[in-house]
Amino acid sequence: MKRWAICYVSSENDRMEENHIEILFSQTQRNNMANDISGILLYSQGNFFQVIEGNAITIKELFKKIENDDRHRNLFRVFNREIKQDQYDDYCCDFLTKYNQSEELNENYYLQFLKNLDHSSQTAVQNILKAFVD
C-alpha cells in the first residue's frame, strides 16, 4: 500500500471565531485519526499550515476536499509525494488565538518530523514554518 504526504499552507476565507477553529480542529483530528491519517494542522493569525500523510488514495481524496473547501483561499501546496514511512505518530492540531498569543508555537518540535524529507522539501517547509510561527 502506497503511503503519501501532502503539505500545504492557506489563508482562511472569512475571519473565523475561536470556537469555530476549536470545533474544526476537533473534527479534523477525530476524522483523520479514524481514517489512519497522521500529520499536523497549525493555525495562526488567519493562516493554516498542514501536513497530512497516510494511504495514497485517502490522502489524495482528502486534499481534493480541502482544495474545494470554501474556508480556504490562497492555497499553496508545498509538496505532494510518495513517502517511505510516516513522520507523525498520530494527528495533532495547534493554534494561536487572541487568547493565547503570548504562547509560541514550538517551531523545533514541528521541524523534528521533517528529518526524513529530501533536502529541498525540508528547506521549503522550514522557511514556511518559520514565517508562520513568527
Results as ranks from 00 to 15, higher is better:
28 T>E: 04
81 R>K: 15
93 C>E: 05
99 Y>N: 13
116 N>R: 11
121 S>K: 03
27 Q>V: 12
53 E>L: 06
84 K>G: 12
131 A>R: 15
83 I>E: 00
4 W>Q: 12
12 E>H: 13
27 Q>Y: 11
54 G>Y: 03
18 E>A: 03
95 F>H: 10
35 N>S: 13
48 F>N: 01
87 Q>I: 01
125 V>P: 02
57 I>E: 10
68 N>R: 10
133 V>H: 11
113 F>G: 04
112 Q>V: 08
35 N>K: 07
81 R>E: 15
109 Y>A: 00
86 D>Y: 04
92 C>M: 15
110 Y>M: 01
3 R>V: 07
21 I>D: 05
112 Q>W: 00
93 C>A: 05
80 N>Q: 09
12 E>A: 15
36 D>V: 09
52 I>H: 10
34 A>K: 15
71 R>Q: 09
23 I>T: 07
23 I>W: 06
1 M>P: 12
121 S>F: 02
112 Q>S: 11
17 E>Y: 15
20 H>N: 14
102 S>I: 12
89 D>M: 11
53 E>M: 06
123 T>G: 04
88 Y>M: 12
77 R>C: 09
120 S>L: 05
102 S>Q: 13
15 R>M: 12
104 E>C: 06
18 E>Y: 05
110 Y>T: 03
96 L>T: 14
57 I>G: 04
67 E>V: 07
58 T>N: 12
8 Y>G: 00
1 M>C: 10
66 I>T: 02
40 I>V: 13
57 I>C: 07
75 L>T: 11
37 I>M: 00
99 Y>Q: 10
70 D>R: 11
119 H>S: 13
122 Q>Y: 09
44 S>W: 08
76 F>I: 10
21 I>V: 10
18 E>M: 01
17 E>T: 11
129 L>M: 05
78 V>L: 08
127 N>P: 03
45 Q>T: 15
121 S>D: 14
38 S>E: 10
99 Y>G: 08
126 Q>T: 15
22 E>R: 13
48 F>Q: 01
1 M>V: 13
130 K>A: 02
75 L>K: 03
102 S>R: 13
